[in-house]
């Protein structure tokens, strides 16, 4: 299978990449290519120009900002997200999430920036980044803006990135609270039928101090389950009746219907995962 012909431009710096994007209408960025190449082969996308950002070292950096936020370059691979000690220390849920992605080979090449920009409803990172309140940094030749991942993702394969704009960095507020992140798929490398990322911290007196829960593979984009979060916050963790919260809070969901699973099945799997994972977190069991 061959993609449609395109012109190839190899950027050596972020500025050069942004200039290429500005000068070429119909251009697209190629990061690790692990999602984009299948889409180019199937001709879902037919860019006239492909701007390669693989040769820009600064996009592969992981830094800790002065306020403690993690700053992860767009071209940091899933392998690096697993192995990097700064990420694992400050946002262990993100490293655990990367372990669930595809297979060894794909993880060596695929990147966090590319995965976010693909905006697949079943993407592994998105629920986790939403639970972490992570933000993306978008740049053009003469502007730079930040927005929450939750706002950036619009729908299946749709983001708020405008023409000439490129995701250069992901900002992750640190979170060392107890967490669970799981995906359910028939085979591990497959896209999820349901996925859940949950961060729950308990106060000393056993109350739920904070709860951030997001799900993917259910609707046209991953999203936070705020009804469950607010039902949990402030409650004594031992006295929560999870079933009474999860049932109604997921009632309105209208999950996707595709060859991997129908809506009822997806919802059933999701409820089971929430009940088990939140049950573990409320009882204070460490991951």
């Amino acid at each position: 299978m061959y993609p449609k012909s395109f012109e190839y431009l190899r950027a050596k710096s972020v500025d050069q990449a942004l200039q290429y994007l500005k000068d070429n209408e119909g251009s697209r960025v190629i990061a690790g290519g692990q999602s984009l190449l299948p889409m180019l082969k199937s001709r879902l996308y037919q860019p006239t120009v492909l701007v390669d950002i693989n040769f820009i070292p600064e996009l592969r950096e992981v830094k800790l900002g002065s306020n403690g936020d993690l700053r992860i370059g767009a071209m940091v691979t899933h392998y690096d997200v697993i192995e990097n000690s700064t990420i694992r220390e400050n946002a262990p849920i993100l490293s655990s999430t990367a372990e669930n992605i595809a297979d060894v080979q794909i993880r060596n090449r695929g990147t966090i920036g590319g995965s976010i920009c693909e905006a697949d409803p079943s993407a592994d990172y998105l629920p986790t980044l939403m639970a972490l309140d992570a933000r993306v940094v978008l740049k053009t030749t003469d502007s730079s803006r930040e927005m929450k991942v939750e706002d950036f993702i619009q729908g299946p394969f749709e983001t708020l990135a405008e023409d000439g704009e490129m995701l250069v960095e992901v900002i992750v507020p640190p979170s060392k609270a107890n967490y669970r992140v799981e995906k359910y798929a028939r085979r591990k490398a497959d896209f999820a039928i349901a996925s859940v990322a949950a961060i729950v911290s308990l106060s000393k007196d056993g109350k739920v101090a904070d709860a951030r829960i997001a799900t993917g593979a259910q609707q046209d984009k991953p999203h936070r389950l705020r009804e469950i979060e607010s039902a949990l916050k402030g409650k004594a963790s031992k006295s929560v009746n999870l079933e009474a919260i999860i049932g109604p809070a997921t009632e309105e969901l209208e999950p996707l219907d595709d060859l991997h699973g129908g809506p009822e099945y997806r919802k059933h799997v999701l409820r089971g995962m929430l009940s088990r994972m939140l049950g573990d977190l409320l009882s204070g069991k460490e991951a």
Binding site: P38, D52, I106, N108
Partner: peptide, 26 residues
């Protein structure tokens, strides 16, 4: 040719990648 089967696996700087998911120019 879709990144699933791994028959095209090569080592790139010592790490395995799937060569059907990478452009030659890269």
């Amino acid at each position: 040719d879709t990144g699933h089967c791994g028959a095209c696996t090569i080592l790139w700087d010592g790490k395995p990648v799937k060569s059907c998911q990478i452009l030659a120019v890269q």
